[in-house]
Design a protein around this nucleic acid. Structure first.
Lengths: 144, 144
DNA sequence: GCCTTAACTGAAAAGGTTTTTCAATACGAG
DNA sequence: CTCGTATTGAAAAACCTTTTCAGTTAAGGC
């Protein structure tokens, strides 16, 4: 099992929560996801690992994980909520508007910008989420 | 009537929309609001100006205004959506994790970053969406 | 100022998503 | 292995948002 999984599992134990099969399935789903998932998507993906995973359990587990600070809520542009693991080494995503292909962007060049935001607003910045929309090379071809 | 109201009214007319009493009430509510309002709050505030204002109309008017680019959707941390009049130009928001206060950030310094993303990925970038989470000055005080 | 008509409205119903309730089940400490 | 408690899924409730529909209103032409 991956190192990240173990780290997450430990969070559960340290906070006195059981690491049940449904919860493990949810962790797996989030770990392999290339993008933030809605609760319904997490259920769907999680059922690959644990067939009976219920949507209610997804909501409850996400709430728990949010309290522990291991997931981040992302407010997707279409109004639904998405959840992604709160990664220390963090990445951003570019999503194709046509085919929804996702590319990860490594390296975050927002540090300086965030610094200036903190100074201007007096806020203590705790996190940020950047989603970039575009049209991937393939779909650009097809349009012609 | 305020200058900003007239400007908004003109937007409606220019796009071939009627400026009905319910819509005027919604504009007034948004104009006097010190923060983004949820649809329900807009209805409540709007009823001060037009008692029969229905929630359905609030949704429809917001949709219309979003198309015209005169309101901005703010994704509040508690899951609800908020709406605020759009200030001209592209802005981002910083949302307080504790009290959900919102501050607008003027000026977007992501242009260069997005340029490099386009080059690295081959995507044609069409938009981006940045959400910054933090703790506002007030809530920082209270924690002590 | 009226008339006409297409846009607009609120109420009700439908469609989604999220939360609560509850009896049955699974975890993990001992 | 056993036991007590946390956790589970299903069903129902509670929301929030969208659609449908018949009646109303705004705004341009006379």
């Amino acid at each position: 099992m991956s190192e990240r999984f173990d780290t997450l599992a430990q969070h559960f134990r340290e906070n006195g929560h059981k690491l049940t099969q449904p919860r493990q399935a949810i962790l797996h789903a989030l770990l392999v996801a290339p993008k933030p998932l809605s609760p319904a998507e997490i259920q769907e993906q999680g059922q690959v690992f644990y067939a009976d995973l219920g949507l209610v359990t997804v909501y409850r587990t996400l709430e728990l994980m949010e309290e522990m600070g291991v997931v981040r809520t992302v407010h997707l542009a279409d109004g639904c909520h998405g959840y992604a693991l709160a990664t220390p080494g963090h990445t951003h995503h570019v999503v194709c508007e046509r085919c929804h292909a996702v590319v990860e962007i490594f390296g975050c060049e927002l540090g300086e910008f965030l610094q200036s935001v903190a100074e201007r607003t007096g806020y203590q910045i705790t996190g940020h989420w950047l989603e970039i929309a575009g049209i991937c090379a393939n779909c650009q071809q097809m349009e012609k």
